[in-house]
């Protein structure tokens, strides 16, 4: 049984958001504009991607799939960059975050498509694009958090890092605790959501499948697959971002070089 949503159904839900906007305007909570803009954006963006997916699904072509995934990848890369508190040099920041997203999402999606899901053809957009989208969206958060923690903590503790270098530690030793801390910061959200899944929260993807009429156990199996893919993707992604960032943070003589990474030092 699949109950299709009508435009009227969606308008009802939109009314709730409008009501909230009205209330927050009355109470001067200074969120009205952002709320309306974001609501508008989500409607337009999702409708557009719906149309794009519709035409891509009916016309399976690897060139289209590659193009869409590259757009998704670079937008996610920019998103990570814009979530950093310290302004990174644009090309380095973008390069490092996209490279890590590539490891975390592309490789994991590729592996899942070719060995686990095995659609025909393996790049069939009905599987490839939603899967990549889910991985990008989730690993992006972890990578952005890990990157931000590394650069912020290293900046605050730059005196300590230099002191450790003075004592003859390698750049890797001098950064060991900070790296550990950043890894934790990047991984905690996904570890928490794995721990809470099914008890505190029903994950969105599974809920969506069930609402759309799938058998719960089938939906659960997909959700478990997704969880594992997201977790490993996030982990590999955060590790690559830490590795790339800590290499760039020092020069070949183990000197702390924020000027190589940050816009203003």
């Amino acid at each position: 049984m699949l109950i299709k949503l009508t435009a009227f159904d969606l308008s009802l839900a939109a009314c709730l958001v409008l009501l909230l906007a009205l209330l927050s305007w009355k109470m001067q909570l200074l969120i009205t504009r952002q709320l309306l803009v974001a609501g508008l954006r989500t409607t337009v963006q999702l409708l557009l991607i719906g149309l794009v997916l519709k035409s891509v699904f009916s016309n399976v072509n690897i060139a289209w799939v590659i193009m869409i995934t590259l757009v998704m990848l670079s937008v996610a890369g920019w998103e990570i960059l814009s979530r950093q508190h310290r302004k990174l040099k644009v090309w380095w920041g973008f390069g490092i975050s996209t490279a890590s997203l590539f490891v975390s999402s592309f490789m994991v999606t590729l592996l899942a498509l070719t060995t686990i899901i095995q659609a025909d053809p393996w790049y069939h957009p009905q599987y490839a694009i939603p899967l990549l989208g889910m991985l990008l969206g989730n690993t992006m958060t972890g990578i952005a958090l890990g990157m931000d923690r590394l650069i912020q903590t290293a900046w605050q503790q730059r005196m300590i890092i230099e002191q450790r270098l003075m004592l003859g530690q390698t750049s890797s030793q001098a950064l060991a605790e900070i790296r550990r801390d950043s890894m934790r910061a990047g991984m905690i959200p996904i570890i928490n959501s794995m721990a809470a899944a099914g008890i505190v929260s029903l994950p969105g993807m599974m809920t969506g499948q069930i609402l759309a009429g799938a058998a719960p156990v089938e939906a659960v199996k997909y959700q478990i697959l997704i969880m594992f893919l997201i977790t490993s993707g996030t982990g590999f992604g955060v590790i690559s971002v830490l590795w790339l960032m800590s290499r760039r943070l020092f020069d070949e003589r183990h000197r702390l070089r924020f000027d190589q990474l940050l816009k203003q030092v």
């Binding site: 005196m159 450790r164 003075m166």
Partner: peptide
Amino acid sequence: VAAPEWRQQVALLPADSQWW
């Protein structure tokens, strides 16, 4: 020589020491 090795031999002590 590798920089860490050099700094073990040629050691710098700043006015304010750092402890982590």
